[in-house]
Computed example of a mutant assay.
Amino acid sequence: MKQITIKDVAKKLKCSVSTVSRAFNDKYDIRTETRELILKTATEMGYRPNPIARKLIQQRSFNIGVVVPEFINSFFPEVIIGAQEVLHEQGYQVLIMQSNESSELELKNVQTLLNNMVDGILISLSSETDNMDFYLNAIKEKMPMVFFNRVVEGLPASKVLFDDYKWAFFATEHLIMQGYKDIVHLIGSKDLTLTKNRTKGFEDAHRKHKLSPGKSEVAGFSMNSGECFIEKRIEENSLPQAILASSDPCAIGVMKILKANGFNVPNDIAVMGFSESKLAEHVAPPLSSVEQPTYDMGRTAALLLLEQIKNKGLFVPQSIVLNGRLNIRESSMKL
């Protein structure tokens, strides 16, 4: 079967090849009715655009890279779903990579995407990442990049953030209102902006209620990190009254070890998660958690990136902060 070309469409309509090309590429200098007729005729003739030629003409790969720290929990897949919906609507393919919480692998992932000439990158940093030189250079070279969820202060790039200060404050205040005074805040990484904002919210909630600020301790975001933290505290016989965890997996790890050692949640120690994973309602006891708008985060980040690509690097970095919700369940309620 003969492959229908742009010349065949032009011949059928008795117009120039350049006119058909402008219609396919949605140029401004072609009448709407002419464009619609050309597209309708091309479809009827069975014309299929050559994707490689399209990329060469428009000097785009129509690929977007996404780099996330992990896929184990539902948070990042949900963000990706929101981003993909926006990007696919605009004709982009999404190349997804994960750093496994390794700064070294993260940089390799980004370099691979750059080598494959992606048009832009959406990225959430690993818990190890602290050197921003690589990203500063990429931004200076006008590589469109949007950072989401896990970011570092000082980067001249667009960011999509969660209001970590506000919701860490509310989560801490909930624990204080339940009567808990000795509260430990587990953090994932001391260098991330979200950690600094959550810590400030944690401390300000204590100040509001005229309590000495509890401790913030580096643990990590994983279930294993929660297990390791609480095992050490049990060995030291230094359990707090309550824990505000860095993530739901971390909180669930804490509860798992407490249960294995005969402790009751929340009677012996209360636990609050962060991120509202799908497991939160299904563990025993059900886990209180701060819900983050993962789907909206992905959509917002993708829209910011498309705007940056459209403006070819000429843009003013934006920081968009999203709101959340506190879901109170049995794990943090004093019985």
Rank of each mutant, 00 (worst) to 15 (best):
E70M: 07
Y135R: 01
K312E: 10
G214V: 05
G65L: 03
I4K: 03
R31S: 06
M297W: 00
F274G: 09
H282D: 05
S238E: 06
P249I: 02
D268N: 13
I57T: 15
R233T: 03
C15L: 14
I121K: 07
N311C: 08
R325N: 15
D163M: 12
S126P: 02
V146F: 05
G201W: 01
K256P: 08
C250A: 15
Q111H: 10
K140Y: 11
D182S: 05
S127L: 15
L175E: 10
D119H: 13
T19K: 11
F24Q: 11
N264W: 07
V316A: 10
L306F: 01
V17M: 04
D163P: 12
G188V: 10
T195H: 10
D130W: 04
N267P: 11
L239E: 01
N100R: 14
S61G: 06
V146M: 02
D248L: 03
M333Q: 15
G253I: 03
I81T: 08
A10L: 05
L56N: 04
N50C: 02
E276H: 14
G179V: 00
E173S: 10
P156V: 06
M145G: 09
R329V: 10
L113F: 03
V17H: 02
N264K: 15
L113I: 01
D204C: 09
K142M: 06
V151Y: 01
N50Y: 08
K256S: 11
F76S: 09
K259G: 13
F274N: 14
K208T: 02
K310A: 12
E173Y: 04
P240W: 00
A205W: 01
T300W: 04
T199D: 13
A251S: 06
E276V: 00
E217C: 14
T193H: 14
S319F: 00
F147H: 01
I257Q: 04
S331H: 03
K208C: 09
L105S: 07
V290A: 08
F147D: 02
S99W: 04
C250N: 15
G214E: 07
I252F: 13
Q58D: 09
